[in-house]
């Protein structure tokens, strides 16, 4: 089998709020000093899902692809260290500042270029723009079925049996191959790589493809091809500070709080 994992490098979602800043002119996040970008958490989990399939099925290749800056090599290496076999970086200025549609266009072109692929694993959404669309759009490009927000994936009789998270429980669906599966945090934590794999990953070379290699029209991707135009990016004004209970002891603070709630007719 050949499984593909889509991995995205994003600004650290755990950046302290005080360090999260936006350049209003460029409508861009200003990278917080000393805080390095990370692999989007859901993508790490997607890699975990693919690797578990690989371990069970045997004779399976896992390729990780990432569209992003040169620094996204780091995200690729992380998934390689977890046990993926090959890495492809899609790095081209033409790809930048796109939307889910253009991202999916580039990724789908790369997946097609990889040749035979049995399944694509994506995170349920990237933890920066939170669209949650790319996996679905890749499936549309490939004309494959998709199962989103998976908390469990198993290979069964040549199909994927996927446990999906619903609002009020879970659903089990069978998806034929090839298909796209997007994975949610309920799946479980990604594995901690063994040091030997980290070393091997460090020595692996990551293939780099540009728009020309993929045969995509540079005008149809990135900012030029985006169908959603970012008008404004801003930090919402918070209502300000809470009214903090100032009584001496926690017991008195608790009483004070209950009094306030009664006065405000909340309790």
């Amino acid at each position: 089998m050949h499984l593909v994992v889509c991995a995205k490098q994003i600004p650290d979602p755990e950046t302290p709020p005080s360090a999260f800043k936006i350049d209003p002119q460029k409508n861009e996040v200003i990278p917080a000093p000393g805080i390095a970008p990370v692999l989007s958490q859901f993508d790490g989990i997607a890699a975990e899902a693919a690797l578990r399939i690989k371990e069970k099925a045997g004779d399976t290749k896992v390729t990780v692809i990432s569209m992003g800056a040169e620094s996204a090599q780091q995200a690729i290496k992380q998934v390689l260290a977890m046990g993926a076999d090959e890495g492809v970086l899609l790095n081209d200025p033409a790809f930048e500042k796109g939307d889910p549609h253009t991202t999916a266009t580039v990724l789908a072109a790369a997946i097609k270029k990889l040749g035979h692929v049995d399944a694509v694993f994506c995170g349920r959404q990237a933890a920066d723009w939170d669209w949650g669309e790319v996996g679905i759009l890749i499936a549309e490009h490939m004309n494959w079925p998709v199962a989103i927000i998976a908390k469990g994936v198993e290979l069964q009789d040549g199909k994927f049996r996927v446990q999906r998270v619903l609002e009020d429980g879970f659903q089990t669906v069978d998806v034929p191959m090839p298909s796209v599966i997007t994975v949610s945090n309920e799946f479980g934590e990604p594995r901690y790589p063994k040091l030997q794999q980290i070393m091997q990953a460090a020595r692996k070379t990551v293939t780099s493809w540009k728009s020309g290699d993929l045969g995509v029209d540079a005008g149809a991707v990135g900012a030029a091809g985006a169908r959603l135009k970012l008008e404004r990016l801003y930090i919402p004004e918070k209502e300000g500070k809470a009214e903090i209970m100032d009584a001496e002891t926690p017991a008195d603070q608790a009483k004070q709080l209950v009094e306030k709630l009664k006065a405000a007719k909340i309790l």
């Binding site: 979602p13 999260f20 933890a127 404004r232 801003y234």
Partner: peptide
């Protein structure tokens, strides 16, 4: 966006 750290306004092309 950004896990709710920011808001983004979009128009459709």
């Amino acid at each position: 966006v950004y896990g709710g750290n920011a808001l983004a306004t979009f128009s459709f092309a």
